[in-house]
């Protein structure tokens, strides 16, 4: 699915620069569900953003689904993001003046799908996350868990190969977190590859593999026995 080799990234801070990723080697197979852990500031989000083509590495190789990702134009990056990737964020990042349905349909709009079709498809995905009745509500009328479910539906709408989630449960209480994790596990069961940044051990243990970052390198990379989230719901 993806191969990363000797990936480096630093951020300029004033005159000096902060070396955040110091040679990451990582490869993820199709159907995996990987948790990325590490202390705050260890570069988890940076790594995920580079994988998501929201940011660019300074050096190193990154191959996604057989495609070398390097020096992309904005236009190309837009197409790849739209085709390959689905994003789930800690703060949901829904567009506040669009209804749940319109939010879910947005990636389909950027795929050039016709309005009627994309609204139908968007509704199908909302149904999947159990929010069909809420399709015409604005984000501000939804709870945190509901918002994250809309965001998941949106990430799924374009049928991406890889789902990237940056602390998807970070803004939710334990119970809701487990509900969301149950969803994500279900998606993984259906075959989606998932990369997720998290701080919480119990959430990480609901994945199948845990990567720990420290000082800009992968310090530990272990397979785990997946804890199913359904049992807590």
């Amino acid at each position: 699915m993806l191969q990363i080799h000797e990936l480096h990234k630093s951020y300029p801070i004033g005159d000096s620069s902060l070396h955040v990723l110091k040679g990451i080697d990582l490869s993820v197979e199709e159907g995996e569900m990987v948790a990325i852990m590490g202390s705050s500031g260890s570069g988890k989000s940076t790594l995920l953003n580079i994988i998501g083509m929201l940011d660019e590495a300074d050096s190193g190789d990154y191959i996604l689904d057989g495609l070398t990702i390097k020096d992309l134009t904005e236009k190309k990056a837009a197409v790849y993001r739209n085709k390959f990737l689905g994003f789930i964020f800690q703060s949901f990042n829904l567009i506040n003046y669009k209804t749940a349905l319109e939010n879910v349909a947005l990636p389909l709009y950027y795929q050039g799908m016709k309005r009627k079709e994309r609204l139908e498809l968007a509704l199908f995905h909302l149904e999947k996350v159990g929010l069909a009745e809420w399709s015409h509500h604005l984000p501000k009328e939804l709870s945190g868990g509901q918002k994250q479910r809309v965001a998941i539906a949106r990430a799924l709408a374009a049928n991406p190969k890889l789902l990237l989630a940056d602390e998807p449960t970070g803004a939710l209480d334990t119970k809701t977190s487990h509900e969301i994790m149950a969803f994500i596990q279900q998606l993984n069961d259906e075959g989606k590859t998932i990369l997720m940044v998290t701080h919480e051990e119990d959430i990480a243990n609901m994945c199948k593999r845990i990567i720990r970052l420290r000082d800009g390198v992968i310090m530990e990379d272990t397979k785990v026995n997946q804890v199913r989230a359904e049992q807590y719901v």
Binding site: V79, R81, F87, N93, I95, L106, R154
Partner: peptide, 10 residues
């Protein structure tokens, strides 16, 4: 930013 992450071209 959200639109771009979802695939909006410049």
């Amino acid at each position: 930013g959200i639109r771009k992450a979802l695939g909006a071209s410049p």
